[in-house]
């Protein structure tokens, strides 16, 4: 029971990341009709926003310690961040400690700009081209972005730490009456809550605002919305930026769980596409549902009982489920008729 509960938590966690990426992917597909293979790279860029902010906050000067010695017996050269010099030691280390949550602000700005530039500069030239062309150009873009990051940040993963207040484990078992055996890291709970809030926010934005209404109308029938005198193209540019921001903040917050490297986007991209296809092309609800579902399945598949019965299942379960779903429900779990079927 404990194990099952914990694997559900693990699954929700992983599923949160999948759902956030798949949500943006579906949004872009639904509005712009573009299959964006660079979406994983946007997730990775978001993660590197967290890395960059941490580095910026850590710009230091050297100070020779009078008392302490280094391992060779020479006076120790301490690295003191400028931040601590300017804002005092307490405030400086507080900001450093919270660099990952703070990077959300940076990710929103950076990813918004990246989104607009990407859509206006490149993607819009491909609206009228076949899906194959769109896939090629966005996949190429993903490789370019990945290699740029590799050039500037190196190929190795760069660990980021969660704020110390939430770096320990929570006694989840006591909350739900399962005893003290069920503990779960705080940051992962934070991440799950965060992804739920973002998903809810995106849905609320589309459901309850005029802007959202126009976008939804545009997804249904682009031409009629245009005839009503609405600049639907401009709205869709904003939607693309929004999708980039969602992927970016998802990436930034994921860094304490998985140290980011330049290839992180590719690892998530393939899974996210499976999520989108299983959920149903063009269905936002389907993307979220499938994201959590596949996350949980993947977690269960890596339990030792399951591994012993079916070795290697953890690596293929997602694809296996995708095959089964597509055989039985060719449009995915919540797919609508007429999407990508022309």
């Amino acid at each position: 029971m404990d194990a099952i509960f914990l694997q559900i938590l693990n699954g929700l966690d992983k599923g949160g990341a999948y759902a956030l990426i798949a949500l943006g992917l579906t949004l872009v597909f639904g509005t712009l009709g573009v299959v964006n293979f660079a979406h994983g790279a946007l997730f990775m860029l978001g993660a590197f926003c967290a890395v960059t902010l941490n580095r910026l906050l850590n710009v230091s000067y050297e100070q020779v310690s009078e008392t302490e010695k280094d391992f060779l017996g020479n006076p120790l050269k301490e690295q003191v961040p400028y931040l601590q010099g300017w804002l005092g030691e307490d405030m400086g280390s507080f900001l450093l400690d919270y660099s990952v949550p703070l990077s959300i602000i940076m990710a929103i700005v950076v990813m918004g700009i990246v989104g607009v530039v990407m859509e206006r500069g490149l993607i819009r030239h491909f609206y009228k081209r076949p899906h194959a062309d769109q896939i090629l150009v966005t996949f190429g873009l993903a490789i370019v972005i990945g290699e740029l990051i590799r050039h500037y940040y190196g190929a190795n993963p760069i660990p980021q730490s969660a704020p110390s207040a939430v770096s320990g484990a929570a006694n989840v078992g006591a909350w739900v009456g399962l005893g003290n055996n069920v503990i779960y890291p705080w940051w992962r709970l934070v991440y799950f809550a965060f992804s739920a809030v973002v998903i809810f926010g995106v849905f609320a934005f589309l459901q309850f605002t005029t802007f959202g209404m126009v976008v939804r109308a545009g997804m249904q029938d682009r031409e009629t919305v245009g005839l009503l005198g609405i600049n639907i193209q401009q709205k869709f540019t904003i939607v693309f930026a929004l999708a980039a921001i969602v992927a970016g903040v998802a990436g930034a917050m994921y860094t304490p769980i998985l140290p980011p490297d330049y290839n992180m986007g590719m690892d998530f991209l393939v899974l996210s596409f499976v999520v989108v296809v299983v959920g149903g092309m063009g269905s936002l609800g389907g993307a979220v549902l499938a994201g959590f579902l596949l996350g949980i399945l993947q977690s269960f598949a890596s339990m030792s009982v399951v591994q012993n019965a079916l070795p290697g299942i953890a690596q293929i379960i997602v694809y296996l489920v995708a095959v089964i779903v597509l055989l039985t429900l060719p449009r995915g779990l919540m797919g609508r008729k007429g999407v990508m079927e022309d």
Partner: peptide
Amino acid sequence: AAAVRTPLGAGDFSSFITPVLDS
């Protein structure tokens, strides 16, 4: 109790670690 193989470079080991808790 068990010996579970994990892929090299898995990154996230959480789903391998949680089963340890009640093994």
